[in-house]
């Protein structure tokens, strides 16, 4: 003990803190879940538009949103029991995506019912908002590749502002698969690698 000095101790503290900060703050399951839900919703909307079936779009999204919220709550409850460390970054991440989901719901619901936003502009607007979420998430996850996901969302959003047609639904679905479900799977794989399931503790 006498051999220890202040510099060594400070270096030790720094090393332990840096190592502890390098943990995955989230498992990415919610990205996969919401990606799948939205792709299913978009598929129904596309079929409805193409086949000219009389279905209320807002009701379709309401049903899918309720299913999504319930599944999210169930996943988060499961996560709470599995998580071995809670970080401030993880809490910011949760708040960020909750705020984004609420913003999208408000824009979608109010914009649709007041006709203030054209329904063909929704995918573009939502893409820009989702891009913002990914850009901030990149910092919170400490994963710079997520910034490219944000750029992809913004790029797709820009295209959809100019290209408004039924095919926009297909593009938006593809973006959901490529820039939401696949990144979610990548994050989940990384999380599983870092947090192997422990049953003996």
């Amino acid at each position: 003990m006498k051999e220890r000095n202040a510099e060594e101790d400070l270096a030790f503290i720094r090393r332990v803190m840096e190592d502890s900060r390098k943990i995955m703050v989230d498992d990415g399951l919610n990205y996969i879940l919401w990606g799948i839900i939205i792709v299913f919703g978009l598929a129904i909307i596309y079929i409805k538009e193409v086949s000219r079936i009389s279905l209320r779009s807002d009701l379709i999204w309401l049903i899918f949103s309720v299913i999504g919220v319930f599944l999210t709550l169930w996943i988060n409850r499961h996560k709470h029991f599995q998580s071995r460390a809670k970080t401030f970054a993880g809490q910011i991440l949760k708040s960020l995506w909750t705020a984004i989901a609420l913003s999208i719901a408000i824009i979608g619901l109010v914009g649709y019912h007041t006709d203030s936003i054209s329904i063909w502009s929704f995918p573009a607007v939502f893409s820009i908002i989702i891009g913002l979420g990914y850009f901030i998430s990149a910092l919170l996850y400490n994963q710079s590749w997520i910034k490219f996901v944000a750029v992809a969302w913004w790029g797709g959003g820009l295209i959809m502002f100019f290209w408004k047609s039924i095919q926009t639904i297909i593009l938006f679905s593809l973006m959901m698969i490529l820039f939401q479900i696949i990144p979610g799977i990548a994050l989940y794989k990384k999380w599983r690698k870092e947090w192997p399931a422990k049953t003996d503790d």
Binding site: F12, V16, S20, R21, I23, R84, A85
Partner: peptide
């Protein structure tokens, strides 16, 4: 103490941690 110092360092980085997480890091 080195071990307690490590506990402090870990818990200053994460808000809360489970026993096995601390054991792994320390």
């Amino acid at each position: 103490s080195r071990i307690r110092l490590a506990v402090f360092a870990v818990l200053m980085s994460v808000e809360e941690a489970e026993f096995t997480f601390l054991r792994e890091k320390i």
